[in-house]
Each structure stands twice: as C-alpha cells, then as structure tokens.
C-alpha cells in the first residue's frame, strides 16, 4: 500500500492523536496527517491540501461531521478520498445519514486498532 495523506477531524486533540496512532498501528502508511478541530477547519485544510483518507467525528462545534461530509461533495481535494466516521454517536439514524451523505464507514468509540484496520484498509485497497 502506498503512503497516503490523511485528514483527521475531531474537536478533541487527544482523540486526533489516538486516531492517528490507531491508523499507524493498523498498518496504514501515512506520509502526512492534517488535523482539524471541526468541519469548517477541515474544509479550510482541504482548500490547500489533497488527501486520500478522511476520518471524522460527528459531534463538533461550528460545523459538525454530517455537515462536513455533505460539504465535501464539491471539494476537489477530497475527490475519491473515503470518509470514515469515528464517533461516540451510535445512533442508527446518524449512521444512515452519514452513509447517505457519502461516508464509507463508521467506527464507534471506544475502538481498537483492529476495528480501524477492519474498516479502513478495505477502503484503501479498493481505491488502490
């Protein structure tokens, strides 16, 4: 698998670090990881940088994860990048909504690197 650039969107800096570590433990080769504290910051990152993978929380201030996923439709630098939601929100309605908006996967917190591997690797393999 080639080295990729990823964007992690979560209002907790601790969770962003844990998600990055879990990706690395899952065997994802990361050449660069961009971080954003909410959806609006995520879009600002994508205005300047192309990524091949996006992991996103749902409950965030300013712009939540569902609004962010919706807004990604028109973002050139996110084209083809699978979006995986990582959130404490286990609501079936949120899962359905996220998937209908374009998210490709859903991981519930708390999670293990194995769960990250299970949900993320197949998406990157399909892309490759």
């Amino acid at each position: 698998m080639n080295s990729i650039q990823a964007l992690i969107v979560d209002d907790s800096s601790v969770m962003r670090k844990i998600v990055e570590r879990s990706l690395r433990q899952a065997g994802v080769e990361l050449s660069k990881v961009f971080e954003a504290g909410n959806g609006a910051e995520g879009l600002a990152v994508l205005a300047e940088n192309r990524v091949e993978l996006i992991l996103c929380d749902i409950n965030m201030p300013v712009m939540d994860g569902l609004e962010f996923v919706k807004a990604l439709a028109g973002v050139e630098n996110a084209k083809g990048a699978p979006v995986v939601m990582i959130t404490t929100e286990g609501s079936e309605a949120h899962v359905v909504q996220a998937l209908s908006l374009g998210a490709r996967g859903y991981i519930r917190k708390p999670f293990t690197p194995d769960q990250v591997r299970e949900h993320v690797i197949p998406l990157l393999a399909v892309k490759a």
Partner: peptide, 8 residues
C-alpha cells in the same frame, strides 16, 4: 464522553 456514549 465515551462512557456516556457507550452506556446509552
């Protein structure tokens, strides 16, 4: 947050 989410 995770405890509350996991519980519900």
């Amino acid at each position: 947050n995770m405890v509350a989410g996991n519980f519900k």
